[in-house]
């Protein structure tokens, strides 16, 4: 992997302890506006909390510098080849930009892996996970702390393109960065 020395240095200098707390069960409870019905009086399943790391809430900083930095990474995804989870050279810059942002502003990011819309939903979920893990590893190589990143997958459930052409499929094989 090609690593920009500047980014690594910047990340190393700017990284500091990630100091926020959060209860993952809070964010997972029903009552979320997404649920219109379901009588969701959810309680967290046992065993979950200890294995879940703290998830920091979004660090909203009014400073223009951060806003600009965020604008620089927001919505930038990594795209993959068919059946592949390796990050192609042309997307290494995207990963580096996210690593730099995370290093400087210490947020928490969900890396959401995605696949094209063909095949088993659950197997695709696992393939999307593999892509997200690949990005997570690259971020960590660039100095991002493991607890700043959570690799998850949407599988084939969140296609950017709904068609069935090769171009559509290519649009869907990607990893998105969702800052929290």
């Amino acid at each position: 992997m090609k690593v920009l020395p500047f980014v690594v240095a910047a990340a190393a200098v700017l990284l500091s302890a990630c100091a926020s707390t959060g209860n993952p069960a809070d964010s997972a409870n029903a009552g979320n506006a997404a649920i219109v019905s379901g009588n969701g009086a959810s309680t967290a399943g046992g065993g979950g909390s200890s294995l879940n790391p703290a998830q920091p809430l979004p660090q909203v900083d009014a400073a223009g510098a951060e806003a600009a930095a965020y604008a620089g990474v927001n919505g930038k995804s990594v795209f993959f080849d068919f059946d592949q989870s390796a990050i192609k050279d042309e997307y290494k810059g995207v990963v580096e930009a996210h690593a730099a942002y995370l290093g400087k502003y210490k947020g928490h990011v969900l890396v959401q892996g995605n696949t094209d819309v063909r095949g088993s939903r659950e197997y695709n979920l696992a393939l999307g996970q593999r892509r997200a893990e690949s990005v997570k590893q690259s971020l960590e190589v660039l100095g991002v702390k493991p607890d700043q990143v959570e690799a998850v997958s949407f599988g084939m459930e969140k296609p950017q393109a709904s068609g069935n052409t090769d171009g559509d499929h290519a649009q869907n094989r990607r990893a998105d960065f969702v800052y929290q």
Partner: peptide, 9 residues
């Protein structure tokens, strides 16, 4: 409903 599993990842 109740949450059965919400582990990291």
């Amino acid at each position: 409903r109740r949450l059965l599993a919400n582990f990291k990842g």
